[in-house]
Computed example of a mutant assay.
Amino acid sequence: MDTILGPLYDAVSWIIVQFHSFYSLIFNKDSGAAWGLSIVSLVVLIRICLIPLFVKQIKATRNMQALQPKMKAIQERYKNDRQRQSEEMMKLYKETGTNPLSSCLPILAQSPFFISLYQVLNHIAGGRVVGVMDQSLVDSARKAHIFGAPIASKFMDSASKVESLGATLTDVRVVTIIMIVLMSLSQFYTQRQLMTKNVDLTVKTPFMQQQKMLMYVFPIMFAVFGINFPVGVLVYWLTTNVWTMGQQMFVIRRNPTPGSLAYKQRQERLRAKGKIVEDPAEVQAKEAAEAARAARQQPKRQTKAKRQVGGSAQATRSTAGSQQETDEATSGGSRETKAGKQQGGGKSGQRKGGQQRPKHPSHPSKK
């Protein structure tokens, strides 16, 4: 590996030496400030060079979010034909000009420099020359301490090795643990900010689940691998995490994903400044939709016991209502029958009273 990455060793060590020469004008050349700031400056220089790749990463991530519904439809349609599924996916990428690997470009581009710095610090810890660093520079770097921990020491180093670098094992482990915790927290916050503020929550896609999983996986990876990295590499890693967090905060605030929470907040800020004038019809439609949503009440879910009690009560009320209707109908019929009889009796009496038997004329008496 030293033969393959030899040119990168030279490049990384040369950059560190140049920054160290500058900071030696301000700090002691053997101090941790001079060497630590040299590593931080290396990170800043690399990240500035990677800004174009970061812009591509943002565009690729948004394109992937927009394509997730179509990708899911392809997976459902050809779930039993993996080859056809892959062909349709590649066709979709080609039609939309999307490259899934673009979202990984900054990480892939940093990897060679990260590995090179790791190897340079390992050579420094062993007192061996590396790249453009001669023996005097190597000895100076070995003496440099950051908060009491040598930049070439590791959490897993033995007490004798740490003592040979002029420190104690307790100091090294305390510093490495603090730096690993800060690395994990910065990575978690960066990923959480991406998930909660810069994702269109109206579209549920597998991409969101993947990002949510990474939000918890990356901090664990930092904790596992961090104990095997030299303090100088932890400085590099923590610096690049902080840079990524600040860079993402800037992008989310200035150019958020449409439909996301950050996008709505940006629109509100622009509206407050008078830079966005909305159509009155759109405002009324939005207010009507919000009012309808607020007025809509979702039915509350009841337990099985409550449903049974409610059903029994309803059945009882239904039975009582039916019985009441039956009684009312029966009572009404009786009243109608009775009234009919009374009416019939009156008419009969009237006929009897009104009908008079004709009086026969009296027969004249025989005279």
Rank of each mutant, 00 (worst) to 15 (best):
I15H: 09
V224M: 15
A329S: 12
M249S: 15
F19N: 05
T170D: 15
R296L: 14
D157Y: 05
R173S: 08
N122Q: 08
M133L: 13
Q110R: 09
L165F: 04
L108P: 06
R82Y: 01
V129D: 12
S164T: 07
E76W: 00
N228R: 11
P7A: 00
K197Y: 07
D279T: 04
F147S: 02
V217N: 01
G354K: 07
S103L: 07
I146E: 10
K94E: 09
R173T: 06
R307N: 02
E287T: 11
T244R: 03
P69W: 08
K366S: 11
N255M: 04
Y118P: 02
Q18F: 10
W237S: 00
P299D: 08
A152P: 06
Q57I: 00
S102A: 15
D30I: 05
S348C: 07
S164K: 11
I15V: 15
E325A: 14
L5H: 00
G345F: 10
K204R: 11
V203K: 13
G259N: 02
T170M: 04
K367I: 09
V277G: 06
P100M: 00
D139Q: 13
T196H: 07
T257M: 01
M249V: 14
P69K: 08
Y78M: 14
M215I: 08
I15R: 09
M1A: 05
R307P: 00
L234Y: 06
H145C: 04
G274W: 11
S140D: 06
G246Y: 05
K273S: 12
N99G: 00
V235F: 07
E325G: 05
Q298A: 13
I46N: 11
L261I: 08
N80P: 02
P69F: 00
A159E: 14
Q355W: 10
V44I: 13
V130S: 07
S102L: 06
G353S: 14
V172F: 03
V130H: 06
E87M: 10
W243G: 05
I124D: 11
K338C: 03
A291Q: 14
